[in-house]
Write a protein that binds this DNA or RNA. Structure first.
Lengths: 256, 256
DNA sequence: CAATCGGAGTGTTGTTATTACACTAAGTGT
DNA sequence: ACACTTAGTGTAATAACAACACTCCGATTG
C-alpha cells in the first residue's frame, strides 16, 4: 500500500471543557451555535468552546485565546485531556458547516481536548452571555454539537479521577471557602455523598487547608469558618509524601 | 489581530514509546536514524518510532502501522499519552530534515504521543534489529533525536502512575510468570524495591492472579510456581470495587 | 424574649490495610 | 552429605478508614 501523507487537508482544533462551580452545582461553559446549526447535521444548539489552530500558535495559546473570548481572562487552570482523531468523527454535513464557518476546506479535523477550571463569579456569567456562551449545569446538559457529549463525559470522568490525586478543587473555589462548600463541590464532581465528619477530619488533617479569621455572616444558623488552600504547604507535603512512600507497595496488578 | 487558520502547512505525527520487559530490565524500542542525522541538528542516533499521519488514517491506525513495521505485530496494548504542539519544538535544521525525509513541506509538526506495551520475546528483538530498531534498557538511554528524551521521561512517569491503578503489568509479561518476575517488573517501573513477603501477600489476595500447575525447571534453588492474570476475574472485581467505594471519601484536596 | 429552625462543629470505636521483620523448604551443583 | 540459592510462609504493631449522634450558634418567628 502506498502511504500518502495528506498533511494538506487536515486541520487541528482545540475544544475546551470549562468547568465552574457556583457553590451548589458543577457548571460547564457552552457556546450557542445558531449560525452553525442546520437540518440534517448532528450540530445541536450548544457546543463546547473551541477553535481551529491559528497561524503560528501552539495549542495552549489557542486555548488561552478561546478562554479570553468567552470568559474574559487568561490566567486559568488548563490541562490537555485527549485527542479525537477518527476521520469519521466530523464528516458530511457537519464538515461542510465547519468549513463554511471557518472559511477553510479541510477533509478532516483532529481535535485536542482541554479541561479548564475557573473560579466562577457573576461577572463571568454575564460576560459569557454577552459573548454567546452560557454556564450550564452539567446535569442538565442536553444534546451538544458533533461529538461534544462524548467529550464532556470523558472530561467529567477525568476530573473525578484527578480530584483524588491533585488539588484541583481549589481551582474551582474562591480563595476563601467553607468546608461545606468544598464538600458540596467534591460531591458534585464525584457524583455521590460523603460523611461530613469524616470529610472534615480528612480535610483538616491534610495540613494545607488552613483556617482564616473570617466566618460566614447573615446566615440563620451557626456561621461556618472560612478556610484557604495553602499551595506552598501542599507542595512541601507532596514532596515529603513521595519520600515516605519510597518503600511502599503499589497495587501492582491494578488497584486491588 | 487577524487570525489565520494555517491548516495547510501543519502536519500531524505520532510517536510511540514502546516498552518491553526482558525479565530483568525495562526496555524501550528505539529506531536508529542515520539517514536522519546531520551536523547542526539536534537529531541524535536514536529516536522513538513514529510517523506522519497518512491519508485517511486515524491516529490509532498510524500507531498500528508503525508497530507492525518495527515489531511485526498488530495486536498490542496502546494508549494515547500527550500532545506536543510547541511550534518551536521542531524547527530549523530539524524541520528541514523531517521535510526531506517525508518529502513534504510543512512549517510545524504537532505530535501525539502513544505508549505501547508488548510482551517482548527473542523473535521480536531480532525482528527489530532487521528493521533498523533496537530494544534498549531504559536506564541506559542516551541522547535521542528532537525532544524524544522529554517524551520518554513523561512516558516513564506515566506508566509508573498507571501501574498503581490498572493491570498494565500483564501487558509486559508472558502469560505465565512468577511472582518474583512480576515484582522485578514493578520495581523496574517504579524505580524502588518492595518487601517480597508483603508484595506476594498483596498479589495473591487480589483474587485475579491465579496459580498454574507449572513450576520453574532447572533452577538451582526451590522452583517458583507460575501464575496467570485472569482478566475476567479482574474486571468483575473492578466492578465490585466501584460499587463498594460509592461512599468512600476521596482525598478531596489532593492525595493526602 | 422565648422558642424554633437549620446547619456547623465535634469524638469514639470497630474494622481493615499497611508495614516491618526471620526462618524453613526445595531444588542444583560439588 | 553439604553448601548454595531463591521460594515461600506468619505475626504483631500501627495507621487509615467507616460508621455513627449530639451540642453549639445565630437568625427568625410569634
Amino acid at each position: 500500500m502506498q502511504i500518502i501523507y495528506q498533511y494538506d487537508k487536515q486541520a487541528i482544533s482545540i475544544d475546551c471543557v470549562v468547568f465552574g462551580f457556583d457553590g451548589a452545582a458543577l457548571k460547564v461553559l457552552l457556546v450557542r451555535c445558531k449560525r452553525f446549526s442546520s437540518e440534517g447535521s448532528s450540530i445541536g444548539n450548544y457546543k463546547l468552546p473551541g477553535s481551529l489552530i491559528a497561524n503560528n500558535e501552539n495549542l495552549d495559546s489557542a486555548v488561552i485565546r478561546v478562554m479570553e473570548e468567552h470568559i474574559g481572562m487568561r490566567s486559568i487552570y488548563m490541562r490537555q485531556m485527549d485527542v479525537f482523531s477518527d476521520p469519521k468523527r466530523i464528516d458530511g454535513e457537519d464538515l461542510k458547516l465547519v468549513n463554511k464557518h471557518y472559511n477553510v476546506d479541510v477533509s478532516r479535523i483532529i481535535t485536542v481536548t482541554y479541561i479548564s477550571l475557573v473560579k466562577l463569579n457573576s461577572q463571568m456569567i454575564s460576560y459569557a452571555l454577552k459573548n454567546g456562551a452560557e454556564w450550564i449545569d452539567v446535569d442538565s446538559v442536553k444534546r451538544l454539537a458533533l461529538d461534544h457529549n462524548d467529550i464532556l463525559i470523558k472530561a467529567l470522568n477525568h476530573i473525578a479521577q484527578q480530584l483524588q490525586q491533585e488539588p484541583i478543587a481549589f481551582e474551582l473555589l474562591p480563595k476563601r471557602f467553607t468546608i461545606k462548600t468544598l464538600r458540596t463541590l467534591c460531591e458534585a464532581i464525584m457524583g455521590f455523598e460523603f460523611d461530613s465528619r469524616n470529610f472534615r477530619k480528612k480535610i483538616l488533617s491534610s495540613g494545607y487547608i488552613i483556617p482564616t479569621e473570617e466566618k460566614e455572616v447573615n446566615v440563620s444558623h451557626k456561621p461556618a469558618l472560612f478556610y484557604m488552600f495553602d499551595k506552598k504547604l501542599y507542595e512541601r507535603e507532596a514532596k515529603r509524601r513521595f519520600k515516605l512512600s519510597l518503600r511502599r507497595l503499589p497495587c501492582a496488578g491494578g488497584g486491588a
